[in-house]
Design a protein around this nucleic acid. Sequence first.
RNA 1: GCUCGGGUGGCGAAACCGGUAGACGCAAGGGACUUAAAAUCCCUUGGGGGAAACCCCAUGCGGGUUCGAUCCCCGCCCCGAGCACCA
Length: 821
Amino acid sequence: MDQRVNGERPEEYDPQKTEDKWQQRWRDQGTNVTDIRGAADPYYALMMFPYPSAEGLHVGNLFAFVGNDIYGRFQRLQGHNVFEPFGYDAFGIHSENYALSVGKHPSTLIPQNIANFERQVKRAGLMIDWTHSLATTDPDYYKWTQWVFLQLLKKGLAYKKQAAVNWCPSCKTVLANEQVIGGRCERCETPVEQRSLSQWFFKISDYAPRLLANLDHLDWSESTKTAQRNWIGRSEGAEIAFPVATSEGDEVIRVFTTRPDTIFGATYMVLAPEHPLVEKLTTPDHQAVIDAYLERTGKQDLVTRKTSTEKTGVFTGSYAINPATGQRIPVWIADYVLMEYGTGAIMAVPAHDDRDFEFAMLFGLPIVRVVCAEGDDPTADFSTPFTGGDDAKLVNSGRFDGLSVEEAKRAIVGMLAEKGAAKPLVNFRLHDWCISRQRYWGPPIPIIYCDVCGAVPVPEKDLPVVLPYVEDFKPDDSGVSPLARHEDWYHVACPQCGARGRRETDVSDTFLDSAWYFLRYPSVGLDDVPFDNNLTKKWLPVDTYIGGNEHAVLHLLYSRFVTMVLHDMDYLDFEEPYVKFRAHGLIIRNGAKMSKSRGNVVIPDEYIATWGADAFRGYLMFLGPFEEGGDFRDASISGVRRFLDRLWASVLTAVERNDGPTPAADSTEVARKLHQTIKKVGDDIPRLSYNTAIAAMMEYMNVLRRGERVPRREEVEPVVQLVAPFAPHIAEELWERLGHSGSIFDARWPAFDPALVADERLELVIQVNGKTRGRVHVARDIGQDAAVAAALAEESIAKFLSGPVPRKIIFVPGRLLNLVG
RNA sequence: GCUCGGGUGGCGAAACCGGUAGACGCAAGGGACUUAAAAUCCCUUGGGGGAAACCCCAUGCGGGUUCGAUCCCCGCCCCGAGCACCA
């Protein structure tokens, strides 16, 4: 080493040794245990808990955890009592499918996986309070998951209905809408079929307006909020009644439309195949065709239905009356109209809707144009529907001709409303949350069916309904959970009347487990309440939440919903669970997605063994912006490791240094850089701009080590503190060697001197006609006239001006001077 | 198709409010140390021109606004993620 002081080779940095030592000490001294009851200044830094897979911790998980850990450690250095808990989302289809594939029971596999995860997470040096960890599979935990179900039931927000549900023929279970991706099962990609089963639902749709409105006030990643807005899917429009033409009764077809202004162009109607009026409206001569169509569409799986672009449909033989024109229009059935949205029926306006246009062209139905762009000929032929345009005006619409689209919407709904034929309506795409799973590995839904009393909730005092050990937990085609095979468990007395009863055999969706876990963490260990009132007041809502955007619409929406319900039932005094949420980016490997099949998955253990946890953490944070993710390249880790090596060497030499004179000018430059770095890192961490924070520290080390000078203690000590959130082990070790006792995380973040942050001399950029032509050294507070004089004094700058004096001067104090001329 | 990101050297990236484009790091080349190698340290490194001082070009493409555009506006192209017949 160049910087050795007395000729001896300084001790080399040995990450394994340092990291073992400090992990041991943290454990022994309870460094990371939060004073849950006594904390004066609580800060809840939460990361999404993982599903403990058999493969172990993925580098993507670790990326998220480290990002949160840095944030949490930084908050602690600011003086907060930081609570950074960890747990496992251990129930669910992933675990069960894996257990099936290796022929073992999940109740033996999951504890193994958790032990492995815990080892890996500890090796990474996260500031986790292990005295408050949980697994959703603990009866102590799912007791309260069942309790949450009972609260929703009590509030009238849980109900059972026979419904067409998404059925995965491979996993042999019902899937929530969110688990169906492009018509396929999100786990196994098998095309999803429709099945009719009796299922438990949560009325999340009742909360749609609030779930949407609150988003405006949340400090969340914008991309996540957008995803939720789209998922909730608010549309403003009107419900309009079309009387059926031939019926002697007063049958009407109700439709939802966002374009009531186009009603004069509604030339036919379409019902979804499952629409209840189909039977009534089918005329005898069309019966055979309709039956054949229903037979065909009923059997279709979701992939065919959702990916086929071709329109199909049949005429019922019946007509309805367009309430605007009074004309008879045919009523068709087609599967491009969905029963789940709106009323399951539409008025078709082929001239102004892509789908209706395609359908009308295919079946030769009339197309009437009722909206035109300004100056267009309404009678001209057209080959594509006209769906919008700011200057659009109504035509062929009687007394509404000439109105703009917005005016016409109001006027036409107003006119129809007077006749009782329409009302303004807001629709949401968000469907109720189906929580029933005909599977084994989940918390049993706490319901008992009694022949006398019907569906009876299990009394809260009898919770948990323990998931019994079932040797053969393989799901089958019956649509009944494997739990029904456990006779002793299945048969039970009715808690109300004592008559013979049977347990509900479905378990609940994994997303219910994770919808409330953040409420439990502070209260882990308490068995008489799901969450203690005082602890909840102290710690919640969560201060910062970090996780992946893959949960933007699933977990994050459900946990908001459950929190709102518990708030409405006076269990919580807040209705939004996460004050601040940031979605981290995705890590790819050498430009490609990581996947097992590509064989390019980064296993953290190997890298940590080679480079040390601190260097690995640092590299993960350095490879790209935290919120955007980045490209993991093996060769690049050495850069961060070299930085730590240099920090180590510099601190050791500074400690050994015999204090001699340091050139004044030099140390001033170092001091300025140091204070600028303290400011920069302190600004960057709260913005999650970890990559630039690390770059700033590297830059400082480069300045510090320039030339032959030996660094002074006060020049390295603050850097050790800055680096602590990123590389906690080496920071602790160096802190100790600098003569401190106790954890560096019980010290305070260093302050910077504002006077040193600002350079006194300024390199003013001189532009001529917007092009940089030079820079001059001037006093920081130089005025415009002096700056211009200084610039013109430079021949290399003045020569670019066409005349002796600039025509125009733009002066940005402290930044630049632009001379035009 | 719709929504949201993104496109900057050989590579990962930076530029925070419209003001020095490429910080920091990797890789590469050269040098020092070494019997040698590794490690370490120092130097060079967007492209083109020039002996040099310097000059020109350059942030996916084409326009525009501006004294000045990676940044704002209009029109395209490409990549990624999500949603997808939602009336």
